[in-house]
């Protein structure tokens, strides 16, 4: 990164225009075929593969000088990788950033969808490690591609049903497969299945970038996204038996914080902006103190 501060030859948003064009064409096809993974010639980025290069390339290809960018990882704006990616775009694109979900025009995320419903005109960019929902059933791209072409998703249902037979539950708790507009089975990225319903008929455009695996896929706004399930085992999301300890929010996804080595635990919102907004509005949970710690 030091080279970048001395070397002013990088283009706006880092990528060269030829690469942006290639990614932009892939994005348009991805939008036109919701849930289908469009191969693209992913580039090396100045952060490692697996650390958000797909999301970063998608964001870099769509970003303009008027955009306001929010970056979250695990729902939080202040996790190290979110901080790092946000700083990257501040540096190479000079754009405005925010932590407020409602103010952002583009939100890049890893592992969560914000709690507040997204609005028309917003774009949610997901960082995706393994875009192929069938990958763990069939490691070969040549095979999984055929399965998508023939709409042959029996294997996925068998796997989920085996879970039920063995454990009494579908044992998939994150990256829970969805079917898009009744056609493509799609990996929602490793978000908890708690977030799956938020993808369905969202007003925002959702773009998915997998850098290492070289795939881009998309969900246009108002698109039907159904989590796979069975009549006798309908899809259901995680439930927490208590509200957020800081803001008292219910029906949100919570992080478990280990307080000591004697079983002390507390549960707080994973979406830090949601939690802070609620506390600014006066909501308090049972431990609703100040947020002032510092990592060293």
């Amino acid at each position: 990164m030091n080279a970048m501060s001395r070397n002013a030859t990088y283009n706006f948003a880092y990528l060269d225009e030829q690469t942006k064009r290639m990614i932009r064409r892939a994005i348009l096809k991805a939008i036109a075929i919701p849930g289908y993974q469009v191969p693209f010639a992913s580039r090396e980025m100045p952060m490692p593969y697996g650390w958000g290069t797909g999301g970063v390339q998608v964001t870099a290809a769509i970003l303009g000088p008027d955009d306001v960018l929010k970056v979250i990882d695990q729902g939080a704006d202040d996790t190290t990788n979110a901080v790092s990616i946000r700083k990257f775009f501040e540096r190479v694109a000079g754009i405005e950033t925010t932590t407020h979900t409602a103010e952002a025009t583009i939100i890049q995320t890893r592992h969560r969808i914000p709690e507040a419903p997204l609005a028309e005109g917003q774009v949610l960019v997901y960082q995706v490690p393994i875009p192929e929902p069938l990958r763990f059933l069939e490691p070969r791209e040549t095979e999984t591609r055929k399965m998508h072409a023939l709409e042959e998703y029996g294997l996925m249902h068998v796997k989920l049903y085996e879970d039920i037979a063995k454990n009494g539950h579908i044992a998939t708790t994150y990256a829970y497969p969805v079917k898009v507009e009744g056609r493509y089975v799609m990996d929602p990225s490793p978000t908890p299945k708690f977030d799956n319903p938020k993808m369905h008929m969202s007003a925002a455009l959702q773009l998915f970038g997998a850098g290492r695996e070289k795939r881009i896929y998309a969900l246009p706004p108002h698109t039907e996204v159904v989590s796979l399930d069975f009549e006798d085992h309908p899809f259901e999301v995680q439930r927490f038996d208590r509200p957020c300890a800081l803001c008292g929010a219910e029906q949100v996804y919570l992080d478990e914080i280990v307080l000591d080595d004697r079983g002390g635990r507390m549960f707080v919102c994973s979406d830090t902006d949601h939690c802070e907004t609620r506390r600014a509005e006066g909501h308090r949970g049972e431990l609703g103190g100040e947020l002032s710690g510092e990592a060293k």
Binding site: N11, K20, L28, I31, A32, I62, G64, L205, A218, P220
Partner: peptide, 20 residues
């Protein structure tokens, strides 16, 4: 302004493709 112009036109096309 090739960089800004291309981005603005692309965003218009992307928005339109996402909202047929």
């Amino acid at each position: 302004a090739p960089v800004q112009d291309a981005q603005a036109v692309f965003r218009a096309v992307m928005d339109a493709m996402a909202r047929p």
